[in-house]
Structures are given as structure tokens and as C-alpha cells.
Design a protein around this nucleic acid. Structure first.
Length: 569
RNA sequence: GCCCCCGUAGUUCAAUGGAUAGAACGAGGGACUUCUAAUCCCCAAAUAGGGGUUCGAUUCCUCUCGGGGGCACCA
């Protein structure tokens, strides 16, 4: 409806106010206070400023214009309050809107805005060799949601994982492994064992520069093709990727492309050579750096003084590859905010090197997961919360609650349902808040199934499905709605595309998450006040159509966020 | 020292520069012979502080305070 109202107002503004109509400050809003109306615009304020008159005066003039030019019966009334022009749409308009939404069905909220554009979403990139810690959940979940959202907006979206499988952590693990092996100790080849080795070595390295030296040397050897190190690397890589795929699958996430840092090793030398040849990079203190003084940034080191490469080098190669080979128009890097500077530098360097032209590169940053002490959780420091542990905890807690509240659900369905509730809860907990804030890790909060949490949404959905099951299959796409709760629900359904657009524009999945909570409120309110199955036949038919449409939109929204639904709860 | 992010009820979070700043949890009270009570209804409580821009500021600018992160060979 909001698009229709936009058009009506712009038409009424006429040619003489084309500047106002095109002004980006002209806004159309859904009114939050129900008694004031459904929609409003600030056009009168802009007109008053332009003409040196009062908003009230301009509002009156514009209102009579709108009454003349708008389709008959579109508005129930138009009121002017404090200079705002407030629109009350008519019942007929609401019914029309419903028809549109229910016909669109699962495509409601989609758009073609991104048609012909390719967007690569990089997320969920683990550091190979270390088990996934809880912090990885954020990137994975936010990234997957953005990927889904962009796809729904008509983009050709590519989900891309960029595992850190080529860096110094391997040098450290290899060094630690060899140290043990030399001492004649048998090393169990498991992911946990390698983590222990890593943490321990890293800790000792702080006080012993010799160990640091050894690790660095192992890294260099690996990068320059040492056989033994390559063999160890492969071992750790396989262990780690197995673990990664298992968890990713459990989370319902998948990647179109899975090119780790090691994938780019054939390109690294050339990246450095070209940068040097063009005079963009220089040698400094034995290393190769790209100075970024003009950009007011610290220099970007692309090769170490021992000739090993860094993730900076890999990132340049990866970006070049995506821009040139994959012809990406947009790349979203869903990576923690602590890498802010790195991406500022990377984007500046890509421009300098001419790889980045008018494509859009965005660092979609998110806050850290902090420990209970409000300090960063770090694997290096041995502060580690295992992601798979958190997932298991969430699922088993869901199973307990499920058996209390819905004992009638059969065993095999119960396990599946507990999985979905547990995982959805973790995801929703993260997705429902602005990604920029830090999160303090807290078991209770993380696994809370009360209030604004996934079970509320899942329950709402299950209720709708239950009504539809009982009603039997019938397909109705329109209806007459008079009850207040019905109209409120339709207005809420009508707002879904706004939430999706906002999420896409700002890379904010939480706008959808918050919207879905509000939608569920409207749904719960509706079926508490109005009976569906026992209503008189024409009303029953209309309400069933509403229930059906609401369930489709709710499911669609949940799916955009990467959440699954259950049929009963 | 410089740079970035954050600061909203007791707590965890909302609010594309718009009206009377919304929820949830927690505390208290109420609603199931009728489509699932993981639901619904009622009730108290907040913009860190100072300037500025604006018809209008939680939102933009600026200073101060507080929390977090980053700043040459980790990712």
C-alpha cells in the first residue's frame, strides 16, 4: 500500500512540486499509534519550508488535492494533525491489499531490484585447524541470512566460504607436532589434540622467541612446497574440514563455493610482483608493503621479510579472482568488526591496483562475542567456547522442554523438532539484534526459549498450520475483513516487503527478525479474538485464507533468516 | 597517542531525522467445557552528560565520560 500512497501523493504534488516529490527527505511512514491512522507523510513540512508558509496550511491544500486525484474509495479519511497528513485506508483497500498478498504467496517480499547483478557473500570462514568456536556462529548465521535476502531481491547471489587454511597457525601446529614427535611422544591426530598443541605452543611462544622463529620457518616451508609440511597440512586440513562440514550441515548452511586461502597460492607471487612493478608496493625493512599514506591508513604488508605471504596477499588475490573471474558486482564480507582496519586497507589497495573499479565491496561487520568478563574470547588465549557444544546444549534443552509441553509428539518427530527449535533459537537470538553490538556470552540468554525468541514464532506458525489441517485443503485467495484484528494483521502482512528491503539495504537481518515477532503478535492476537473454524461460512472462508496467507509469509520470513519451521509444537 | 564500533527501563534488545521512545525477561494481577495456555490481557520503569544543526534529534555534527576492538611482518 505504501507504494500506492506514494504515487497518489506525488501525483497530487503535481509538476510544480516535482522537486519535493523527488526530494529524498520526503518520507512515507506507517503510523505507530493506531488511532492516528495507517500511513503518514511529511510532505507538508517540506512544502512549508519551500514556500515559507506553515505546514498546516500546506497540509490542507495538499489534502484537498489528494482527495481530488486519488482513486475513489481508496481512503476512509484523511486527517491533518500537527501538520502531518494522516491517511486511513478504507476496508476496501485493505481487502484489495490482502488479495495481492495472498496471490503473491511465497513470493511476497521478493523483488527484482538486483536483477542482472551478481553478489558474492563471504561468511562462515573458519580457521582450519582450530575447532569452530562460538564466534563463528555470528558470521555464518548473518551471512546465510544476507545471502537468502539478496537472492530474494533478484540478485544472482553466491555464498562463499573462505577458510583460513594457509596461515601461520599451520606453522605453529606443525612446529608443535614435530616437537612432540621428536621427543618420541605419540600424537593423536584429532582436532582437539591439534587445538591443545596450538594453544600450548602459542602460550609458550610469547616468552620464547626461538619457538616463534621455528613456527615462522615451518610456515614458510609449507608455503614454498616442503613435502613433509604439506603432508601434515593435508592431515590437519581434512580433519578440520570434516568437522566444519558436519556443523555447517547441522546449521542448515551451505556454500556455493568453498575456496580456502590455499586455493590462491598460485597467484600470490604474481600479486606481489605486479604491485612492485607498478611502484605501488615497495620494500621496507625486508618486507614488501603497500604504503597508504594518502588514504591515511597504515601500510599493508603483503610479503614478510622471510618471503612468506600473509592473509593480506591472499585477500587481494581472492578479491581479484571474484571480481574478474566471477564478475561480482558486489562482495559482502561478513566478518567481525575487529577486522575493520584490514578491510579499509584491502579496499584501498584493490583500488590502487586497479582491480576494484565501480563494484561495491562491503565489510559487513558485526560485534564480538565477549566472555562473561566482557573481554574478547580468543582461541589463542585458550578461552574457547566450542560451537558444537553450544549447539548440542541448545538441542538437548529444546528436547527437554518439548517432552514437557508436547508429550504427544512421536519420538522420531520429536528429535527432529528439538533439533529445529534448538538451532532456530540460537540463530534467532543472534539475528534479532543489531549486528554491530557486542554480545556477552551467556548460556541462559543464548538458550532462552521465552519471550522474543524462535519458539514464539514457531509456535505461532504451528498453530496456523493446525487450523489449516483441521479445515482441510481449500485454496482461497481473497476475503472480506471487518474485524480490527484481521485488518491489523493484513496491514502487518502488507509491511513485509518493507522489512526485507530495509534488511537488504542496510545488511541488517534483524529488521526481518523483529518484523516476524510483530507479525506473530498480530497473528496471535487475531486467533485469540476471532474464531476461524467455527465462524459462519463466508467469514470462515475469508479467515482461512488469512490464516493460510499469514502462515506462508511467516514461513517465508523465517526461511529468509535461515530458520526452519515445524508443523506442530 | 591515533582510528573504529557501542552507550535507551533493574536486565537483554527495538525505534529508514518524525507525533505520546516500543518489546521481552524479571516483579504483581487476570483469562482455558470452544481452532494447541510455548498463547492472550492489565500494571510500574529508560534515551550517559554538555553544546550545536533542524519546523522536529535516541538518530546528524562537536566536546566530555564510560565499555569494547584495532593500529608492520597472526587471521
Amino acid at each position: 500500500m505504501i507504494e500506492e500512497i506514494k504515487l497518489i501523493v506525488k501525483t497530487a504534488l503535481g509538476q510544480e512540486n516535482i522537486d519535493i516529490a523527488n526530494n529524498k527527505d520526503l518520507v512515507f511512514l506507517r503510523i505507530k499509534i493506531a488511532r492516528l491512522g495507517h500511513f503518514t507523510t511529511n510532505a507538508s513540512f517540506l512544502l512549508a519550508k519551500k514556500n515559507g508558509t506553515s505546514p498546516m496550511e500546506e497540509a490542507e491544500k495538499l489534502k484537498s488535492k489528494i482527495i481530488q486525484t486519488s482513486p475513489a474509495g481508496y481512503f476512509e479519511k484523511i486527517e491533518i494533525v500537527n501538520g502531518y497528513i494522516n491517511f486511513f485506508v478504507s476496508e476496501k483497500t485493505i481487502n484489495e491489499s490482502f488479495k495481492k498478498i495472498s496471490s503473491a504467496g511465497a513470493s511476497w517480499g521478493d523483488s527484482k531490484i538486483g536483477a542482472g547483478q551478481r553478489v558474492i557473500v563471504e561468511y562462515g570462514s573458519p580457521n582450519i585447524g582450530k575447532p569452530l568456536h562460538f564466534g563463528h556462529l555470528r558470521s555464518t548465521i548473518i551471512g546465510q541470512a544476507l545471502f537468502n535476502i539478496y537472492k530474494s531481491q533478484g540478485y544472482k547471489a553466491i555464498s562463499w566460504s573462505h577458510p583460513g587454511d594457509w596461515g601461520k597457525q599451520f606453522g605453529i601446529m606443525i612446529a608443535a607436532y614435530k616437537e612432540k614427535a621428536r621427543a618420541g611422544e605419540k600424537v593423536e591426530l584429532s582436532i582437539d589434540e591439534f587445538l591443545k598443541l596450538y594453544v600450548d605452543y602459542n602460550f609458550r611462544m610469547k616468552n620464547d622467541p626461538r619457538l616463534e622463529e621455528i613456527a615462522r620457518e615451518e610456515t614458510r616451508k609449507l608455503q614454498y612446497g616442503d613435502k613433509e609440511n604439506a603432508r601434515l597440512w593435508k592431515k590437519i586440513y581434512n580433519l578440520s574440514m570434516g568437522e566444519f562440514s558436519r556443523i555447517i550441515k547441522q546449521l542448515g548452511v551451505r556454500f556455493d563455493v568453498n575456496n580456502g586461502e590455499s586455493f590462491y597460492k598460485p597467484f600470490l607471487k604474481r600479486i606481489v610482483d605486479v604491485a612492485l612493478d607498478r611502484g605501488i608496493a615497495i620494500r621496507s625493512e625486508g618486507a614488501v608493503i603497500i604504503p597508504l599514506e594518502e588514504e591515511n591508513l597504515p601500510p599493508f604488508i603483503i610479503q614478510k621479510s622471510d618471503e612468506a605471504y600473509l592473509y593480506t596477499t591472499t585477500d587481494i588475490a581472492a578479491a581479484k579472482y571474484r571480481l574478474e573471474k566471477y564478475k561480482a558486482d558486489k562482495i559482502l564480507y561478513v566478518v567481525g568488526a575487529e577486522q575493520y582496519l584490514h578491510f579499509e586497507q584491502l579496499f584501498a589497495v584493490l583500488k590502487k591496483l586497479g582491480y576494484l573499479k565501480n563494484q561495491e565491496l562491503v565489510h559487513v561487520k558485526f560485534g564480538l562475542v565477549l566472555g562473561e568478563d566482557s573481554k574478547k574470547l580468543s582461541t589463542r588465549a585458550g578461552k574457547h567456547i566450542s560451537l558444537s557444544e553450544v549447539i548440542d546444549e541448545a538441542v538437548s534443552k529444546a528436547a527437554v522442554i518439548l517432552s514437557e509441553k508436547a508429550p504427544e509428539i512421536q519420538k522420531h518427530e520429536r528429535e527432529k523438532t528439538a533439533q529445529i527449535i534448538g538451532i532456530d533459537s540460537l540463530k534467532y537470538n543472534d539475528l534479532s539484534q543489531n549486528r554491530l553490538s557486542n554480545i556477552v556470552f551467556n548460556w541462559d540468554k543464548m538458550l532462552s526459549f521465552e519471550g522474543i525468541a524462535a519458539p514464539y514464532l514457531l509456535y505461532t506458525y504451528a498453530r496456523l498450520r493446525s487450523i489449516l489441517r483441521k479445515a482441510g485443503a481449500k485454496k482461497i485467495v481473497s476475503g472480506e475483513f471487518e474485524a480490527e484484528s484481521e485488518q491489523k494483521l493484513i496491514l502487518k502482512l502488507d509491511a513485509f516487503p518493507d522489512a526485507v528491503r530495509l534488511a537488504a539495504d542496510n545488511f541488517y537481518p534483524h529488521t526481518i527478525a523483529v518484523y516476524l515477532y510483530e507479525l506473530s503478535e498480530a497473528i496471535n492476537n487475531f486467533y485469540h479474538t476471532e474464531n476461524v473454524l467455527n465462524a459462519e461460512s463466508s467469514i470462515r472462508a475469508s479467515r482461512l485464507a488469512l490464516v493460510n496467507t499469514a502462515s506462508i509469509v511467516l514461513k517465508k520470513g523465517l526461511n529468509l533468516l535461515g530458520l526452519e519451521t515445524v508443523e506442530r509444537l
